[in-house]
């Protein structure tokens, strides 16, 4: 590409089984670029884009359908409503009047019909943008960070709305986001993009529970990505050494240098060492900081390795946690996920 940005994505999406696909990755990973290539707004250097039975782009055969013929409607971050047209005229812009009317009813836009976009709230603009897109009877919806222009409170509320709107249209959609809550709330299927490449794709929960490598783990927001050494195997369980502590986890067939991924929510804290619980992984350590996050709190510890736990604010009160305290972090065996260490993963195959 002229910008010098390299994007090399190989991806097959089962759009018919999973209505909403999330394209997930950190800023600058190429998500929006990929979306623009799909829409036909930018042109790839080479490769192929196929949708259902049709070819949208084929570098070898010189095929490149213009956006008008792809019918992949692109929803921009800030909605891109036409400022000189009313809500009704926006929705009817590329639609049959009956379709537009019906969708405005479904999305509760009837009473806003004569307003101009500048008179709407962010959430209302979002509804108009989705209605306008669906009214055009598209084959595919492409949403670029659809909730990023909203404030935090509106975002949480509209997330669920948006999922419902996307499903109501019966049109498969691809949603670009770097917000993991958005990914969980909106998506059925998820593709993770890091550095211009698709690193992992699968059902959303699978990707979160079993990140394919450390970079994926980091970008999907598993807070604890700890370098580990495999110490021993027995009866389907692996023991790994993390810093000075030992952790048990389910044997996933990994060998060599690995990283242990633990989501902060899966780390519990106690004051004393529980001897007779089913929990096998105990990491004694010291509290470094306690950061309240609404009803939750994020506790950072030094357990020989840096470890982050997210627990309820109530638990923080009950345990009277403060920096400098000795605590014991406990992690269920099944919450520890081993994946290959990033720099060695290529040599292993």
């Amino acid at each position: 590409m002229a910008s010098g940005f390299e994007l090399d994505a190989e991806l097959r999406l089962p759009l018919d089984e999973s209505p909403v696909t999330v394209l997930f990755g950190p800023s600058g990973s190429g998500k929006t670029t990929l979306l623009r290539l799909l829409a036909g707004l930018d042109r790839p250097d080479d490769g192929a884009i196929r949708f259902r039975d049709g070819t949208w782009y084929d570098g070898g055969r010189g095929i490149c359908l213009p956006p008008q013929q792809r019918r992949a409607v692109f929803l921009f971050q800030d909605c891109a409503l036409f400022p000189h047209l009313t809500v009704a005229a926006n929705v009817e812009y590329a639609a049959r009047r009956e379709t537009a009317r019906r969708l405005m009813g479904v999305f509760g836009l009837a009473e806003l019909a004569d307003r101009f976009p500048r008179e709407l709230s962010g959430g209302q603009q979002q509804r108009v943008a989705v209605a306008r897109a669906l009214a055009a009877e598209p084959a595919l919806l492409l949403l670029d960070e659809p909730l990023s222009s909203l404030d935090a409170a509106a975002r949480a509320r509209i997330r669920q709305d948006l999922r419902r709107m996307l499903l109501s249209g019966g049109v498969p959609s691809i949603v670009v986001t770097h917000d993991r809550m958005e990914a969980v709330a909106l998506g059925d299927w998820m593709a993770v993009m890091v550095g211009g490449r698709i690193r992992q794709a699968g059902p959303v929960q699978d990707v979160f529970r079993h990140p394919a490598d450390a970079q994926v783990a980091e970008s999907v927001g598993v807070e604890n990505v700890l370098p580990a050494q495999i110490v021993s195997h027995h009866s389907g369980l692996l023991t790994v050494e993390v810093g000075t502590a030992q952790l048990q986890c389910v044997d996933s067939g990994e060998t060599g240098p690995v990283v242990a991924c633990i989501r902060a929510e899966d780390v519990a804290l106690t004051r004393d060492s529980p001897q007779d619980s089913s929990v096998r992984n105990r990491l004694p350590g010291r509290v470094l900081s306690v950061i309240p996050e609404g009803p939750l709190a994020r506790v950072e510890m030094d357990c020989g390795v840096p470890l982050v736990a997210v627990i309820t604010a109530q638990s923080v009160d009950e345990l009277q946690l403060k920096p400098g305290d000795d605590v014991c972090a406990v992690v269920k065996t099944t919450a520890v996920h081993l994946t290959a260490a990033p720099y060695f993963s290529r040599q292993r195959t």
Partner: peptide, 15 residues
């Protein structure tokens, strides 16, 4: 004219 408005129109299938 905001380029996004033009692109939005193209994507909606308008020539």
């Amino acid at each position: 004219v905001d380029r996004k408005l033009v692109e939005a129109s193209w994507c909606l299938g308008v020539s």
